[in-house]
Structure formats: structure tokens, C-alpha cells
């Protein structure tokens, strides 16, 4: 499979105090480690095991994922905007690689 590509939807502007929804999607097969190939051999697990969302360098949401998360994981969560700044989203793979996306937000 090609390199996992994260896609994030964050509003470009928000009022101070507004709670915004953030949606993220990343292409990843999330191989559960439960499947067998045609020869009956177990296919080794390879999933994204953790996700962190930070704003201006401060993490505000962390999550641990298990093999029960669907392929091409989608999620949505919320954030209360108090100032302009930059979001940083990091997905951590079983193999040690990290997939990163950044998004800026301005005050309306």
C-alpha cells in the first residue's frame, strides 16, 4: 500500500470561545493481525496505534487505537478556540513511523 496520507478538515476561522469540529481521515489498511493469507499463515499486525492532537504545541486530545479500528480510520472530535494558532496532528504506526498534518486557524 502507498504511503498513508492524512487528511484533516479544520475551519479556517473561528470566533474566540467557539467549539469547532475537527475531522480527520488517514489512508491505512489497519492490518489487524487476525487475518490469514491464502497459505494459511497469519498476516502480521500493522496498525496505527496512537493519535495525538495538539494546538500551539500543547496536546489536547490523545488516543490509543486497537485492531478493532476500521481501515482508513476516520474520526471527529472537538476543540474550543481561544486564540489563533496551529494544530498539529500525529498518527503513530506500529512500525515506528509517524504521519503528521498541520492546520492553521485564525480568529474571526
Amino acid at each position: 500500500m502507498s504511503n498513508p496520507t492524512p487528511r484533516v478538515r479544520v475551519p479556517a476561522k473561528a470566533k474566540a470561545g467557539e467549539i469547532i469540529e475537527i475531522k480527520t481521515l488517514i489512508s491505512h489498511e489497519m492490518e489487524s493481525g487476525q487475518r490469514k493469507d491464502s497459505a494459511g499463515k497469519a498476516i502480521p499486525r500493522k496498525i496505527i496505534k496512537a493519535f495525538t492532537a495538539s494546538f500551539n504545541g500543547k496536546p489536547f486530545l490523545e488516543s490509543d487505537w486497537h485492531p478493532a479500528i476500521s481501515a482508513n480510520p476516520y474520526q471527529s472530535f472537538f476543540f474550543k478556540v481561544t486564540q489563533a494558532g496551529e494544530f498539529r496532528f500525529v498518527w503513530k504506526d506500529d512500525d515506528g513511523s509517524e504521519y503528521v498534518a498541520t492546520n492553521k486557524i485564525e480568529l474571526a
Binding site: I19, I20, F55, K58, P59, F60, L61, E62, S63, D64, W65, H66, A68, I69, S70, P73, Y74, Q75, S76, F77, F78, F79, K80
Partner: peptide, 17 residues
């Protein structure tokens, strides 16, 4: 899945598949 929140989340709502 486990999600860990902070007050900065504004509301404790998550969706996933």
C-alpha cells in the same frame, strides 16, 4: 479505542469507525 481529553476539547464528543 481509548480517548484522553483535556478541558480544551470544549465538549467530550468523538466519532470513529
Amino acid at each position: 479505542v481509548s480517548y484522553r481529553f483535556t478541558p480544551a476539547s470544549g465538549k467530550a464528543v468523538v466519532s470513529f469507525r
